[in-house]
Simulated assay, not measured.
Amino acid sequence: MPWDVKRQGGGLDGPSQSRAQKQCKKSSFAFYQAVRDLLPVWFLEDMRATEAFHWEEGGRASTYSPSEALLYALVHDHQPYAHYLLAKFPREALAVPSRNFSCCQSSSPHLALAVRYNRVHILRRILRTIRDFPDEERAHYLDRRGCSRVEEGKTSVHVACELARPECLFLLLGHGASPGLCDGAGNTPLDLLLRRVGQDATATVTAPTPSDPLALLDLLFLYMPPGSASPMQRELLGDRVRWQRLLGEEKFQWLAGLAPPSLFARAMQALVRSISPRRFPEALDELPLPPFLQPLDLKLKS
């Protein structure tokens, strides 16, 4: 070890504490660089457990937890290291990190971070890991809201809709994340998508790509409970011609509450929602997916 963390524990005077803090910064940055450079898993784990320290509130040095190491793996897309941490420490890797890494101690940021950085493969491994959790614990983890100051109380589904992450959204919904929760401002994921459609000058009703807001709207609808309504209904009706042009007549009718979805749309909704979260996405092979979901199917299982 380059320095003795136990010797640098409590009871330090000013100069000693300052030296210890500087040593922590050096070893912390060295670990960050090692993950960024995609060094081998065995090297990173040896470094995390014995050589890399960060400075905790209260004036003490601490080794990196599996949860904190997973955050670095997510940021730098170190897939082998993320997979190792989730396999070796399934609950510890998904636990709430220290205050140095997360300003809000009420939620775990891994899901939202995976969506924000579009780390589809690591997100898929996280969701596969929580399959073995009890149903209540799994649902609680999936629907946790982010920090009220940074994420404005958004769930991971909100983030996927806001940033147009179709693969992430499909994975989250397929594993049981709720599509209808409100964020800190009272917005559902449907509200965020509709606002995105309204702001997107390129929105079109002809053959949208998977990342277009309209395609995400179709995807979100597959998992929305019957009778779901948006607070934007009044806005849709107030500017009817514009929203009909942006959404197309069929989507406009059911989003504005003027007509139910088509029979085909209802059938696809029942079909997709019949898949158990514990069998997603493997069970997609058994379904005749609509065209807008087929490219996502290939990416989720690759």
Score class of each variant (00 low, 15 high):
residue 126 I to N: 02
residue 132 D to L: 07
residue 275 I to W: 05
residue 54 H to P: 09
residue 48 R to S: 00
residue 119 R to A: 02
residue 145 R to A: 06
residue 151 E to S: 12
residue 243 W to V: 02
residue 180 G to Y: 11
residue 55 W to C: 08
residue 64 Y to T: 09
residue 103 C to L: 03
residue 288 P to A: 06
residue 168 C to S: 15
residue 201 A to V: 05
residue 186 G to I: 01
residue 163 L to F: 10
residue 110 H to W: 05
residue 31 F to L: 13
residue 265 A to E: 15
residue 16 S to D: 11
residue 182 C to V: 11
residue 251 K to D: 03
residue 13 D to M: 03
residue 255 L to S: 05
residue 169 L to G: 01
residue 232 M to G: 04
residue 243 W to G: 06
residue 112 A to K: 14
residue 207 A to F: 06
residue 156 S to Q: 10
residue 296 L to R: 14
residue 75 V to D: 15
residue 224 M to W: 02
residue 101 F to W: 12
residue 93 A to Y: 06
residue 247 L to A: 01
residue 145 R to I: 04
residue 169 L to R: 15
residue 171 L to Q: 05
residue 11 G to H: 06
residue 241 V to R: 15
residue 80 P to E: 07
residue 119 R to K: 12
residue 40 P to Y: 02
residue 177 A to D: 00
residue 98 S to M: 01
residue 22 K to S: 15
residue 301 K to C: 02
residue 98 S to P: 07
residue 189 P to H: 06
residue 94 L to I: 00
residue 169 L to M: 09
residue 85 L to Y: 07
residue 5 V to I: 14
residue 187 N to W: 08
residue 162 E to F: 10
residue 146 G to V: 02
residue 98 S to R: 10
residue 249 E to S: 11
residue 197 V to D: 01
residue 298 L to Q: 13
residue 236 L to V: 00
residue 231 P to K: 14
residue 35 V to M: 01
residue 111 L to R: 13
residue 210 P to H: 11
residue 51 E to A: 10
residue 164 A to D: 07
residue 56 E to H: 12
residue 38 L to G: 00
residue 139 A to R: 15
residue 230 S to R: 13
residue 38 L to R: 10
residue 274 S to H: 08
residue 52 A to G: 03
residue 137 E to T: 12
residue 243 W to N: 06
residue 266 R to L: 12
residue 43 F to S: 12
residue 56 E to V: 10
residue 58 G to Q: 07
residue 183 D to M: 05
residue 101 F to Y: 13
residue 66 P to N: 04
residue 219 L to F: 03
residue 157 V to Y: 11
residue 27 S to D: 04
residue 273 R to F: 00
residue 108 S to K: 09
residue 172 L to S: 08
residue 160 A to S: 06
residue 232 M to V: 04
residue 35 V to R: 14
residue 285 D to K: 15
residue 277 P to L: 00
residue 216 L to N: 08
residue 298 L to N: 07
residue 226 P to S: 02
residue 107 S to Q: 11
residue 135 D to N: 09
residue 90 P to D: 02
residue 181 L to P: 10
residue 57 E to L: 11
residue 246 L to M: 07
residue 290 P to S: 03
residue 28 S to I: 08
residue 117 Y to L: 09
residue 48 R to I: 01
residue 15 P to W: 04
residue 100 N to L: 05
residue 17 Q to H: 14
residue 197 V to L: 12
residue 53 F to D: 05
residue 234 R to V: 10
residue 234 R to E: 07
residue 23 Q to I: 05
residue 112 A to W: 06
residue 202 T to M: 13
residue 272 V to F: 07
residue 216 L to P: 15
residue 122 I to T: 03
residue 94 L to S: 02
residue 130 I to E: 01
residue 8 Q to F: 13
residue 290 P to Y: 11
residue 46 D to Y: 04
residue 205 V to H: 06
residue 285 D to F: 09
residue 78 H to S: 00
residue 41 V to F: 02
residue 231 P to A: 11
residue 90 P to V: 01
residue 204 T to R: 15
